[in-house]
Design a protein around this nucleic acid. Structure first.
Lengths: 193, 193
DNA sequence: CACCGTATTGACCGATCGGTCTAAACACCG
DNA sequence: CGGTGTTTAGACCGATCGGTCAATACGGTG
């Protein structure tokens, strides 16, 4: 190998993902990405297949770094009800702390649906299914441990919780302020109480 | 007035709005609109200020035709709890019936946030506030009539219901099927039962 | 008919789009 | 040192972007 790359692919993917996250896929140009990364156009196309490829890899990285790893961590919390509470609290916190109001890349992508190929749609569906499964698992576990009432209907509740997550993320981009977001989160927690 | 326009502005706005709805603002080109309407480029710019103007007017029309008028109608229903139920049922039905999975223009716009000017953001915020107000009014009325329990916390519940509406519309674009959407809608109705 | 004023049309604008390609820069090998 | 293979830099590509404009078509008025 005669010459090393001057950049790490994973770093460029992360930076490009941030741009897609902020502006959306359709509104992001290659020039936006070269500006944000400092990578020249030719180098970028030498390392990646193109805009679509870059986006998919960014979406995957986002999925792991900000969703999967977080859910796995929460699954280690002893009290499943507490895990769900923590999930919503950190969700609201993350939404309020973001000055750019970027929302969630996964859901942003879900609403740019028609701009994307089937592989991206599949990633979105899988990501959402992952959250549903998390809630289902925690609710089921909580019922076994007696910290969540048996009257809670596991699967419908899990799906409704995901819908509330989507709502928080979308409305948190501008329409709802901190009070409203916290009220919604509290209602979510009340659903399993 | 020597010569009449060959098209009705309101019809063109409606058609353009459909395109924006389906593809999103950033991904829609003027050519897409001229193709969809049959209006030539020059005529379009003679009648409207430009892409942004056309979008805003479409968003306003959408807001009235598909939201405001519907909410006003539901407010005439005797039983407020039934009105909310009807709202969610027709929401799910509309989501399932749409073969293009366009979702809701208002929420789609909410997630294209950074692509838009402040006036569009304001329209989105106003539209969402309108739905919150509708739910608040119906819940309050329902509590007075005794068809909604006093234990329901009016304002947080109204906001959570809106979050669920957003969730249904977003997830209905692909991630959730009819069963899941109906389960979420049922959970929404259960929140006021 | 001529004239006026608006609507329509399609060519046209510079800018930017995603993507390509060549030539120079470079680290390794002999 | 001269090859060799990869990365880099940036000029360049045709296509398309949102928007403009001058020429033309037309109805109303004298």
């Amino acid at each position: 190998m005669p010459w090393e790359k001057s950049f790490k692919e994973s770093v460029v993917i992360e930076q490009a993902m941030e741009v897609f996250w902020e502006k959306g896929y359709a509104a992001t140009s290659i020039s936006d990405i070269t500006d944000a990364t400092g990578i020249k156009r030719g180098s970028l196309y030498n390392a990646f297949e193109g805009k679509h490829d870059l986006f998919v890899r960014g979406l995957l990285k986002y999925g792991y770094d900000r969703r999967t790893s977080n859910l796995r961590m929460l699954e280690t919390v002893d009290d499943p009800r507490e895990a769900i509470t923590m999930f919503f609290n950190s969700l609201v916190k993350a939404t309020l702390d973001d000055p750019d109001k970027k929302g969630c890349l996964l859901f942003n992508t879900a609403l740019e649906y028609s701009s994307h190929d089937d592989d991206v749609k599949q990633l979105v569906t899988d990501g959402i299914k992952e959250i549903v499964t998390f809630f289902e698992g925690r609710i089921r576990c909580g019922k076994e441990l007696g910290v969540i009432p048996d009257s809670v209907d596991t699967r419908p509740t899990a799906k409704a919780l995901v819908a509330l997550v989507v709502g928080i993320r979308v409305l948190g981009r501008g329409a709802f302020g901190r009070t409203a977001l916290r009220q919604v989160a509290q209602q979510a927690i009340d659903m399993i109480s």
